[in-house]
């Protein structure tokens, strides 16, 4: 148990939702109604994450990702099942759990809006009671991983989205937590900023052996950071293994790119078991001229898409 940063055993979460009625009469009825229906957001999820591991926690919108994250961070209590974060039950002692986790939401800054970044860092140092030496070492580490000079004295409100995300990630590590939860950290960022953020996460994970639970819709994040992915859909865990394994499963799939006469690229996913690639090209050539051809292995993006669409694993 000691080397597990996070353990979930048969965790379920139900929400009670009021059955709403239509119209004015219905609204009045709702005021006194005890007519609830139960919605299962998370069904029987078990999961173990080792120290220092980065896992990609994926799933379509509404799959139950955020609910799980909220249970892991101690904000929500599971309806049944057991969760241990750093060996402790998160919701039983929220404050204590918070000492050991860091959380970043891609679009919501948790820093003090009007304060320069360095002041936010100092306040966090005091909030988490981080020893001065440890704090200074951490800032030093930050300096070695990213160029923080342009943002360190800038108030958060004046930052670009990329700078703000970067700041939020740095802030989440300042108390050297055992686990960091990153919720879509690269959403809305340009390509070079995405690379920067990914490199930073990787660097911090390596240096501090921090466990990272990454939820994202960007497969670039997954490819750059995670070896293992967990996929959840309709509240159930449907996949939990190495990403390579998953690609192996779809090993017979190829992505065919064709540059057509009007210089546009057309893209097709082909299962070599059922379709012959050459035949597809020949068929296409009968209709239009093909200027260039590229054949690729299936991308992570397409693998995930296939799974979301319900192809068995």
């Amino acid at each position: 148990m000691e080397d597990q940063a996070l353990v979930m055993k048969n965790v379920c979460k139900d929400f009670k939702v009021l059955n709403r009625h239509e119209g004015l009469k219905g609204s009045i009825q709702d005021l006194f109604s005890r007519d609830y229906k139960t919605i299962s957001a998370v069904k029987d999820v078990s999961l173990e994450v080792a120290r220092g591991e980065i896992i990609g926690y994926l799933g379509p919108n509404g799959a139950g990702k955020s609910t799980t994250i909220k249970m892991m961070t101690g904000v929500l209590e599971p309806t049944s099942g057991e969760i241990l974060v750093n060996g402790k039950v998160p919701y039983k002692n929220r404050t204590e759990n918070c000492e050991n986790i860091g959380v970043v939401f891609g679009q919501r800054s948790q820093l003090w809006w009007s304060l320069p970044l360095i002041e936010s860092f100092k306040l966090l140092r005091d909030l988490y009671m981080v020893p001065q030496q440890q704090y200074e070492d951490m800032i030093e580490l930050y300096r070695s991983l990213v160029d923080i000079e342009p943002i360190i004295n800038k108030p958060v409100r004046q930052m670009s989205l990329g700078q703000r995300t970067l700041s939020d990630i740095l802030a989440a590590f300042i108390h050297n937590p055992a686990i960091v939860f990153l919720d879509e950290p690269t959403i809305g960022l340009d390509v070079s900023m995405k690379d920067k953020i990914r490199a930073l996460i990787k660097g911090l994970n390596k240096e501090k052996n921090t466990t990272v639970i990454l939820t994202t819709h960007d497969m670039g994040d997954v490819d750059a950071l995670c070896r293992r992915i967990v996929i959840i859909d309709k509240g159930m865990k449907i996949y939990d293994n190495d990403i390579e394994h998953l690609k192996g499963y779809f090993g017979s799939y190829r992505t065919l790119h064709m540059k057509l006469a009007d210089d546009t690229w057309e893209q097709m996913l082909i299962d070599e078991k059922t379709t012959d690639v050459m035949q597809v090209i020949t068929e296409k050539q009968k209709v239009t001229k093909i200027k260039d051809i590229r054949l690729e292995e299936i991308s992570t993006e397409e693998v995930i898409k296939k799974i979301y669409e319900g192809e068995a694993v």
């Binding site: 909220k70 404050t95 909030l127």
Partner: peptide
């Protein structure tokens, strides 16, 4: 946005 207040040990 209120959720951010729940992640600090205070």
């Amino acid at each position: 946005d209120f959720i951010k207040y729940c992640f600090r040990p205070v």
